[in-house]
Design a protein around this nucleic acid. Structure first.
Length: 461
RNA sequence: GUCCCCAUCGUCUAGCCUGGUCCAGGACACCGGCCUUUCACGCCGGCAACACCGGUUCAAAUCCGGUUGGGGACGCCA
């Protein structure tokens, strides 16, 4: 089995493309086949080197390694051209001298009259030859059915009369998508073409081309679209759509891969899958037929899960760029790991974790004014003053702090929570934070005193 | 408009092929509770769906037909 992912470098790798790539990758792995990458850069105007690199990077980040070197389609245009000419020679394609503008007018008219816009084939039997501005069209059948058993959707059939004679070679001598895809898929020995739903309409045309070339068509499988919350096709206005945008937001590749896989595919009730595990489990039989809505909350949940289950040292390293982006000084690896340990159950993304880490890394935390108003009251300040005394020598384990807190609460006749909050505000600047013992363990005795002093001064000032 | 595809909780889905074990299971989200120095995490519990109509059958989420709704395609883009 040989599968392929064939993106056109006219944009960054997006969510939909990534899932297509993932399913092709998974299928090849499951069947011990090959997964190849082909860059469809035949649209010279819109294809760029930057996008090509961006797509390759995104694939690597996701862990979707391909076999062999990527194939660049543009480099093969001469080969494609020869194949077109061969078709003309065999009488399976013909030169068309129609002006694109004229055809466009006919198309608009047909659409306006409620019909299906299609080329009328007027140059078909004219026996025209090459000429400036001429294109080559495929000579399709006039009747009959073209069908296949789709790997995900089951039997699909089109009437030949629905298909017009598609252009194979543009008037600028460049091969078109449908031609290049078929020629390359044959040449590369692709056995299974797994792609987006939006290609179903191309499939009968491509099957016809396979036949014209005397080749057996591969298996086709069309994956349902991914939709936004409003059920329309996922696009920029639904938020981040490029894979690397999720990287920048602080998502882990395994979370995104896991999420994308479950968008359409399932294996019973299981929700958590590693890429390796899916490689053994994947099957197109378990891919649904209907479109799926992209749900960022579930992605968040998965990301939080992986943030918690990955090695803290790994997470520390991944977190560094996000801290740097916030211009925060990096602590020692040991301290950073401790910080991660206190934050990973409270963060959905690395970026959120970096934001939450700020109070540790700043010289003094930013005191939230509203919380200060509530907590740095005369009573709060006296509690804080007591803490200042008590913490001259900070507790050296969780139990010791627990005792300190309970004793103080008893002495002041308040609940432990009430005794703790002023200290929390002094140390972290906010009222919701990791456990106070863990925070103090990370800050160390000097910073503790400094922060308490600053909080006492804050209230006074 | 024409053609193609799709239709189970708000969302992702299991079940559908091989009808009864489904007054429909899991997950996210949401709501309640427990735990608790705050917030989270975790644990426990709850809310919530077979689009509609007809047919086949002793029996339909499951099979068939239609309706409605949604998506996609209709390029000398890919």
């Amino acid at each position: 089995m040989i599968t392929r992912f064939a993106p056109s470098p006219t944009g960054h790798l997006h969510i939909g493309g990534a899932r297509t790539a993932l399913f092709n990758y998974l299928l090849a792995k499951k069947e011990n086949g090959r997964f190849v990458l082909r860059i469809e850069d035949t649209d010279a105007l819109r294809s760029t080197e930057e996008y090509t690199q961006s797509i390759l990077n995104a694939m690597k980040w996701l862990g979707l390694s391909w076999d062999g070197e990527p194939i660049f389609q543009r480099a093969r245009s001469q080969f494609h051209r020869e194949k077109v000419l061969w078709l003309v020679e065999k009488g399976l394609a013909y030169w068309c001298h129609c002006k694109p503008e004229e055809i466009e007018i006919g198309r608009q008219k047909a659409l306006a009259e409620g019909g299906k816009p299609r080329y009328d084939g007027r140059c078909r039997e004219l026996g025209l030859g090459p000429a400036p501005g001429a294109a080559v069209r495929f000579k399709g059948p006039d009747f009959g059915q073209i069908g296949w058993t789709d790997l995900v959707k089951g039997p699909i059939a089109f009437d030949a009369s629905e298909l017009d004679d598609l252009v194979l070679l543009r008037s600028d001598d460049q091969p078109t998508y449908n031609l290049a895809v078929v020629v390359d898929d044959i040449d590369m020995g692709i056995t299974d073409v797994i792609r987006g739903d939006d290609h179903v309409n191309n499939t009968p045309r491509q099957i016809l081309l396979y036949r014209a070339f005397g080749a057996t068509p591969p298996n086709f499988g069309h994956l349902p679209m991914i939709l936004g919350a409003d059920k329309s096709r996922l696009s920029k206005r639904h938020g981040a759509t490029s894979v690397m945008a999720y990287h920048d937001l602080g998502y882990l590749p395994e979370a995104l891969v896991n999420y994308l896989a479950r968008l359409g595919w399932s294996h019973g009730d299981q929700e958590i899958f590693s890429l390796k595990e899916m490689e053994g489990l994947f099957s197109l039989k378990n891919v649904g037929k209907s479109a799926a809505v992209f749900n960022p909350e579930k992605l968040d949940w998965l990301n939080a899960h992986y943030l918690k289950s990955r090695e803290p040292s790994d997470v520390s390293n991944l977190l560094k760029p996000f801290l740097e982006k916030r211009a925060l000084a990096l602590p020692s690896p040991q301290i950073l790991e401790k910080i991660v340990l206190t934050l990973r159950e409270r963060s959905k993304t690395l970026d959120e974790m970096a934001a939450k880490a700020e109070f540790y890394l700043l010289d003094l935390p930013k005191i939230d004014p509203d919380s200060a108003k509530k907590l740095l009251t005369p009573q709060g300040l006296s509690i804080l003053a007591r803490w200042r005394e008590l913490l001259k020598s900070p507790p050296n384990d969780h139990g010791a702090f627990e005792n300190l807190l309970r004793n103080l609460a008893a002495e002041l006749a308040v609940k432990p929570g009430a005794a703790a909050q002023p200290l929390r505000l002094a140390l972290t600047g906010v009222t919701a934070s990791p456990g106070l013992y863990e925070v103090m363990d990370i800050l160390g005795p000097q910073a503790i005193q400094k922060r308490i002093d600053a909080a006492l001064a804050y209230a006074v000032g």
